[in-house]
Simulated scan of single mutants.
Amino acid sequence: MKNKFLLILLLSSVFCLAQSSKTENIQILIDSVANRMIKKPLIHSTSIAIVYQGKEFIGHYGELEKGKKNCPDNKTIYEIGSISKTFAGTLAAKAVCEKKLNIEDEIQKYLPEDYPNLKYGNQPILIKHLLSHTSGLPNMLPLEANTILQNFLNHETPAKIDELYKNYGEKDFLRDLHKVKIDTVPGYKYSYSSTGSLLVAFILEKVYKTKYEKLLTDFLTNDIAMQNTKINLSNQETKKLAVGYHSDNSVITSPMPQLPWGASGNMKSTVPDMIKYIKFELENNKIVAESHQPIVKFSKEFSIGYFWNIDTDDQKLGTFYIHHGGVPRSQCFIYIIPKYDLGAFIISNQSGADTAKVMSEAINEIFGKMTLIEKNI
């Protein structure tokens, strides 16, 4: 009996050491990849968060401002850009689960006046078309924004966007919606649309009779315990907002201007809060399961859920969910990989031609080497 107890104790110790070794190796891997990443041209800081089988790994690297030794930390607030859309999709999935919303509904049902232009022939735009970027709506309203963004890397682009959206509110958006022309049958052609995500926020306001920002904040606080994720910041919170750089401009760029409802790209968050979001997504509760349902399958490898890009092309990772976020002074990615109970968030306070490529290469290297660590433990 004594020998059996000693054997159990020995095996338990070996297991604990193996787990400890695995944890240390993963953190060393993340540190190594990140420290090489910030040596790339223009990218001088990054924050990375990994959730793996319930364990959390967070790392902050480099300097937010070159030469100032101001490394980001857990209190740094980042602009997460279009990852904001996944939150709008989650709230839409919640409304569906609560039977408050049917994604087969025509959007006209929720609009304050008649929009005969929001259809192609007799084919109207449905809510599911907004969620899957197949509505045929333009990326941005007002329409001039799309012309400006064609030259995204131009140093004058952020200032032009700032000027365009100065005092641009919800009434202006609904007015400009009349100017849209749908040139293809909704539901088939992928065409990325921030306009569509703003309309989802507007529809959710009608469904819940609550302003979108409050609806979002209440959900994040009560359901996910995300206390530091929001659309608008207080004066005190603004002091913690990461500075950032656009293209190859060495001058600090102003924050993304406020868009109506803020659902397309105005959310801000901290890395610990994004860890909570990843964990929520990996729980696969009924809201998450609904939001991950493919709405449109474009190919065997790619489909769209409630604003989530669904990738089935990687045999090793299995089906996973991904979204990129970008504003003129930061870019980021979020990955949800259920097969391995794995999720990741990576962000840099630089937004240029190669930022997304550099970040995706870094995360792919981490994922690839994590599987080797798992095998060797």
Rank of each mutant, 00 (worst) to 15 (best):
E301Y: 07
S299F: 05
G59D: 02
S194A: 12
L126P: 03
K109W: 06
S193L: 07
L198H: 08
Q123W: 06
K357W: 10
D223C: 09
T270N: 03
L282G: 07
L17M: 10
A263E: 00
M256W: 05
A344R: 02
G305L: 08
G54W: 03
Y245V: 13
Q53V: 13
I366F: 04
C16E: 10
I77W: 08
L177G: 14
K230D: 12
F152S: 12
T147R: 09
L130N: 05
T46N: 10
P260S: 11
K209R: 12
K268E: 06
D31Q: 05
L126H: 12
Q108E: 13
E98P: 07
T76P: 01
M256S: 07
L7H: 00
P294V: 01
G343N: 02
L11N: 00
D314A: 11
Y321W: 10
S348F: 00
I80N: 05
L126T: 11
T23V: 14
Y340R: 11
V200K: 04
N70A: 06
E79V: 10
F15Y: 12
E56F: 06
T270H: 07
A242F: 01
R36F: 12
K85N: 08
F87D: 03
N228P: 04
Y165F: 12
I127M: 06
L131K: 02
K339T: 13
N285T: 08
Y165R: 04
N154W: 06
L342F: 15
L153M: 12
G305A: 09
G196F: 05
E24P: 00
L118T: 09
K316W: 04
F152V: 11
G59E: 02
P72W: 00
Q258A: 12
I252G: 02
R36W: 10
I43R: 01
K211N: 15
I103T: 15
T184V: 15
F367D: 03
T217D: 06
P41G: 03
S264A: 14
A34Y: 00
N285K: 04
K276F: 04
W261C: 02
I275W: 04
V14Y: 02
N266S: 11
R329N: 13
F320L: 11
P338I: 10
K300Y: 06
E113I: 14
L177I: 15
N284T: 15
E79C: 06
M1L: 08
L164C: 02
I347Y: 02
E24I: 15
E213T: 14
Y245L: 14
N364V: 13
P257E: 02
D311T: 13
L198C: 09
H129W: 06
I366S: 05
G343V: 00
Y212E: 04
K211W: 08
Y168M: 11
S32P: 00
Y168C: 08
V296C: 03
K297F: 03
E170K: 13
I30Y: 00
K55S: 15
T134D: 01
S264L: 05
Y212L: 07
Q258L: 13
A145D: 02
Y115W: 15
Q293Y: 08
S348Q: 01
